[in-house]
């Protein structure tokens, strides 16, 4: 739906300093652009749960990170997410790939549980499912930051 250049430009507009990242087959297509960026650093982690805590340390240290992971990684992240978003009350940003959302007949359990999990965690998310919604990435995350709360961009995946 979007090129890495478009996503990187959105992150640059937000003043993102670090992209804390574990790819999937959609998010991974942005990696070359992320690696080339002079606006932010790319931080690779091994588990998505690590990403939230690295982002927390970056935020405490005065930086502006964003976590970029797939929805399955959101499921893996539970305890770390609880810790940094609720115990530490840090208004972190994330972009989460919504696996199989654009496949109407998919029985992928990752698709079934993604939004219920976000709602259970009481996370404010904007679902991006069409190309004309690109400006919402900046708009939603900026609005969440102004309200001092975490913001999630839920990025529909499933088609090229």
């Amino acid at each position: 739906m979007f090129t890495g250049q478009q996503i990187a430009a959105s992150f640059a507009e937000l003043g993102v300093t670090h992209v804390v990242y574990l790819p999937d087959s959609t998010l991974g297509t942005w990696e070359a652009e992320f690696s080339r960026s002079t606006q932010f650093e790319l931080v690779r982690v091994c588990r998505e749960g690590e990403a939230w805590v690295v982002a927390a340390g970056l935020h405490l240290g005065g930086q502006r990170p964003i976590v970029v992971i797939q929805s399955t990684g959101l499921f893996e992240s539970g305890d770390a997410l609880r810790n940094v978003l609720y115990d530490l009350k840090l208004p972190l940003w994330s972009l989460i790939g919504y696996r199989s959302y654009l496949l109407p007949n998919s029985t992928d359990s990752a698709k079934r549980f993604c939004e219920p999990i976000l709602k259970a965690w009481d996370l404010d998310y904007a679902l991006i499912e069409r190309p004309d919604q690109l400006p919402q990435i900046v708009g939603h995350l900026r609005a969440c930051a102004e309200q001092g709360k975490p913001g999630v961009v839920l990025f529909a995946e499933g088609k090229g």
């Binding site: 670090h18 650093e41 931080v43 982690v45 690590e50 805590v53 690295v54 982002a55 927390a56 340390g57 970056l58 935020h59 405490l60 240290g61 005065g62 930086q63 990170p65 770390a80 810790n83 115990d87």
Partner: peptide
């Protein structure tokens, strides 16, 4: 925050 300390330390070190 059991197990999370090295990652918080990493974020601070990068910041």
């Amino acid at each position: 925050a059991m197990g999370h300390s090295p990652m918080l330390g990493l974020g601070l070190a990068l910041a």
